[in-house]
Write a protein that binds this DNA or RNA. Structure first.
Lengths: 230, 230
DNA sequence: GGGGCGACATGACAATAGTCAAGTTGTGCA
DNA sequence: TGCACAACTTGACTATTGTCATGTCGCCCC
């Protein structure tokens, strides 16, 4: 990918987009640009954080390994999204590992650069808090889903989030493979398969990585209904 | 509670403890001090955040209500813990509601005070990020538990977190009632009851709000084992 | 002291998700 | 072209959890 294109994507990221031009230039000029292959590790849990990461292309997953090797996917990021803000600024170990799940380009902003800029201008702190709050919010939403919805309902919501429209019909591409979707939604691949089958009567057709939704409103109704009143 | 005692507790909070004395004084002098009864609402989801909250005594739960009225407990805070940092500084709506689950004292720091101080001294931003990161971390840990452990294992870990020792035996008090513990662990009260019974053979005795653990290491082993290899 | 109420425990049953095994399909590489 | 492998699907079975109903216990209040 052309470097100029990369910079343009970085400028649109939640982390940078509200910063004054001058600071953005400083950050971009000190950033490290790297490509990763599918399956490559970006950083490991317990490693000390030395940078903030901005995804420019491809998909990155954050996950935690339990003592016994089972993995829990915490989040999945793509173009324009950043992660590691709160950790990098405090020189503490990452609570999660990061891995490229597709070939991808990532920009790394070394934390000392960010820190020194932050002492100059408090706006930077606000921007970082904005990005961190977005993560906090998405974790809270995920927690709510896990605690209050069945597997099929979580799948339904996942599909709804891929749709742009509020109602009517819709065709979407599944953004990454089903094993990862299952992990992200806290279920096994087999359960995801079955959840898809259960959504068929609700007007959802899955073919490869392509999904056809015939009635968005109906699907939303299914996702939001209390499981007890079905 | 005496006001001086309250201030002493506030000073020890994660949010304030690493700030220079002068800033702490400013914040304390602008803070609002309030008491809440059990069941009283501190703020509601979707309400606009106008302050950061520090618990001085008692217990506060943060939770989300789904469209249908089922509630998902996101976290439970007590003395010295703070919440709402990232939200207050951005004037966005709270993603959760907060309610006192026991009589409690809470200090509110109006966000404008925090914001103006932050523009003076970037250290404040770092302190806020520290507190925010702690929340982020605890949410990630909770997500991992929900995705990778059975109910009984989560209960075991909950008990272990109440113990001070690393091994041997231990007696602990359950910090709040079982309905809330169940909510916090993402299960129904009935399931919590059964989880406790299942822990009996592992040397856990529950009597009212009192728990006796005969072998911490054994319990830890149970909590950390892959469910598949039982 | 005697309701009455809410928290908690327990049993029976249903729903949901995980496990194991077998089969299908698609992709990439020899 | 064809083999090998990984992703995915499906079925049968089991484990776990939720639901509903019932019963006990402790506590608050008159």
């Amino acid at each position: 990918m052309a470097h100029e294109t990369q910079k343009a994507i970085a400028r649109q990221s939640l982390l940078l987009k509200s910063l004054p031009e001058q600071h953005v230039e400083t950050l971009l000029s000190h950033a490290i640009w790297r490509s990763y292959d599918r399956g490559e590790t970006i950083f490991l849990q317990e490693e000390e954080a030395k940078a903030v990461h901005v995804v420019l292309a491809g998909w990155v997953k954050l996950f935690r390994m339990s003592a016994t090797g089972s993995e829990a996917v915490v989040s999945v990021f793509t173009r324009g999204e950043s992660f590691g803000e709160a950790v990098a600024l405090r020189n503490v170990p990452y609570p999660v590992s990061a891995e490229a799940v597709s070939p991808c380009d990532v920009m790394h902003i070394p934390s000392p650069v960010l820190l020194s800029l932050m002492r100059e201008d408090a706006e930077i702190g606000i921007s970082i808090l904005a990005a961190t709050f977005a993560h906090l919010h998405s974790l809270v939403a995920q927690l709510e889903q896990l605690k209050a919805q069945t597997g099929s309902q979580r799948v339904a919501e996942f599909l709804l989030n891929l749709c742009d429209d509020e109602s009517g019909a819709c065709d979407v591409e599944l953004p990454y493979d089903k094993m990862l979707i299952a992990g992200r939604l806290g279920m096994k691949p087999e359960s995801l398969s079955r959840a898809f089958s259960r959504l068929k009567p609700m007007g959802v057709k899955i073919n490869r990585n392509h999904a056809k939704i015939s009635d968005i409103s109906a699907l939303r109704g299914y996702a939001e209904n209390d499981p007890s009143e079905k």
